[in-house]
Amino acid sequence: MENKPFLTTRSLQPENQESPIHFLSSWLTPDKYFYRRNHFSYPVLTSKHLWLQINGNISQPRFFHLYEMLSLPVKSLILPLECAGNKRAHFHPKVYGEQWEDGAISQGKWTGVPLFYLLEQTGFSKNTKEIVFEGADFGRKPNKDNMIPYRRSLPLEKALHPDTIIAYQYNNKSLDYKHGYPFRLIVPNWYGMASVKWLNKIEIIDHSFEGPFQTEDYVYYPHKNDDQESYPVTTLHVNSIIQQPLPFTVLNTGIHEIKGIAWTGKGVVTEIEVSLNNGDTWKQAVLERSNDPYAWTKWFLLWHAEKKGEYSIYVRAKDSHGRVQPLQPFWNRMGYGYNAVSKVNVKIE
């Protein structure tokens, strides 16, 4: 009987589950293993949610039905989505929020209509500043009295990028209900909070959007007790995961494969280095790339473990924009964007 991995539960109301990332080797994450990140309970969908509304600062408000979307220009992208709080559990001192370890990231093939094509049908104004996206999920935030939907915006330039799409398929099948059916915004190179699920309304505005998921959450606050020098969470940092060996594994002497994945929100991953002596010296890992420009990079290094003892394995990724994983994380009050050098401890016996 084949043993299979399971999601790791972080909460059930709302549901937040980690992908078993250490045990997945395929380029495309199956639906059932895709991480789940929710702010509210799952929405109750009806036939009206098969329509996508576009309104606001435009001359021709539109509704697009799912069946119409299927007949429009199509684009497919293979890319990872990473929760901004991925690896939050590794911060010291600890911060509040879901204590994600490594599994709030998954990768798949997203298929849908380029957003710019839909916007071109609406005659949006030249003074448009941002595009606001609203999901069907809603609830009450702890610091708010009223029920609110999940809403976020993109600056016009990012919204009009040819690879920003309204997806209706994942891995060549209709979107799974728990991952945004029937429409999900997909924003390459940005953290997952931008890729709004259960998308049912798009609004074009001529000012800055200031909803709570834009100006309170998903903001880097570098200081513990004040909001000075804060700035929004947007582009993915260069990052990596050691998939195997697992932390605090006991191994025999011999040859062992150290392997994992790496990704970035700028350019491509160009180099993976592995250290077995706390960062004193580094060895080059072998890279396995995909032809898809946004896809993560697989890597491995064969380690000849000849001496018994305890070892710390360090891994750092570099990208084509010169960004490198730092030895120490950038601590911030809400625990976003952790990308310090990946580390695991193992013992050779």
Rank of each mutant, 00 (worst) to 15 (best):
residue 4 K to S: 15
residue 5 P to T: 02
residue 5 P to Y: 04
residue 6 F to H: 13
residue 6 F to N: 14
residue 10 R to A: 07
residue 12 L to R: 12
residue 13 Q to F: 12
residue 17 Q to I: 04
residue 17 Q to D: 11
residue 20 P to W: 06
residue 20 P to N: 11
residue 23 F to Q: 10
residue 33 Y to D: 04
residue 36 R to W: 08
residue 37 R to L: 07
residue 39 H to E: 12
residue 39 H to L: 08
residue 41 S to T: 00
residue 41 S to R: 10
residue 43 P to N: 09
residue 55 N to M: 07
residue 56 G to M: 05
residue 56 G to P: 09
residue 58 I to S: 00
residue 61 P to I: 12
residue 67 Y to T: 13
residue 68 E to R: 06
residue 69 M to G: 04
residue 73 P to I: 10
residue 75 K to Q: 10
residue 76 S to N: 10
residue 80 P to I: 11
residue 85 G to K: 13
residue 86 N to Y: 01
residue 87 K to A: 14
residue 87 K to W: 12
residue 89 A to N: 13
residue 92 H to C: 13
residue 96 Y to P: 04
residue 98 E to S: 09
residue 100 W to N: 09
residue 100 W to R: 06
residue 100 W to I: 06
residue 101 E to V: 13
residue 101 E to T: 15
residue 103 G to F: 02
residue 105 I to N: 12
residue 109 K to W: 02
residue 111 T to P: 01
residue 115 L to R: 02
residue 119 L to F: 00
residue 123 G to C: 12
residue 124 F to K: 05
residue 126 K to E: 12
residue 132 V to M: 03
residue 136 A to L: 07
residue 137 D to Y: 05
residue 137 D to G: 05
residue 140 R to N: 08
residue 140 R to F: 00
residue 143 N to V: 01
residue 144 K to H: 12
residue 148 I to L: 15
residue 153 S to P: 01
residue 157 E to A: 13
residue 158 K to L: 13
residue 158 K to C: 01
residue 159 A to L: 03
residue 161 H to F: 07
residue 162 P to Q: 07
residue 169 Q to C: 06
residue 170 Y to Q: 04
residue 184 R to M: 11
residue 185 L to T: 09
residue 187 V to C: 12
residue 187 V to S: 05
residue 191 Y to E: 06
residue 195 S to E: 03
residue 205 I to C: 07
residue 207 H to Y: 15
residue 208 S to L: 11
residue 216 E to I: 14
residue 218 Y to F: 15
residue 226 D to W: 08
residue 228 Q to G: 04
residue 230 S to G: 02
residue 234 T to W: 00
residue 235 T to W: 03
residue 240 S to T: 11
residue 241 I to P: 01
residue 242 I to C: 00
residue 243 Q to G: 01
residue 249 T to R: 06
residue 252 N to E: 13
residue 256 H to R: 04
residue 260 G to S: 03
residue 262 A to L: 12
residue 264 T to V: 07
residue 266 K to C: 08
residue 268 V to K: 14
residue 271 E to A: 06
residue 276 L to M: 11
residue 304 H to Y: 05
residue 305 A to H: 04
residue 312 S to R: 15
residue 315 V to R: 02
residue 316 R to T: 06
residue 316 R to H: 08
residue 316 R to W: 03
residue 317 A to G: 08
residue 322 G to S: 08
residue 324 V to A: 04
residue 330 F to V: 14
residue 339 N to Q: 11
residue 343 K to C: 11
residue 344 V to S: 03
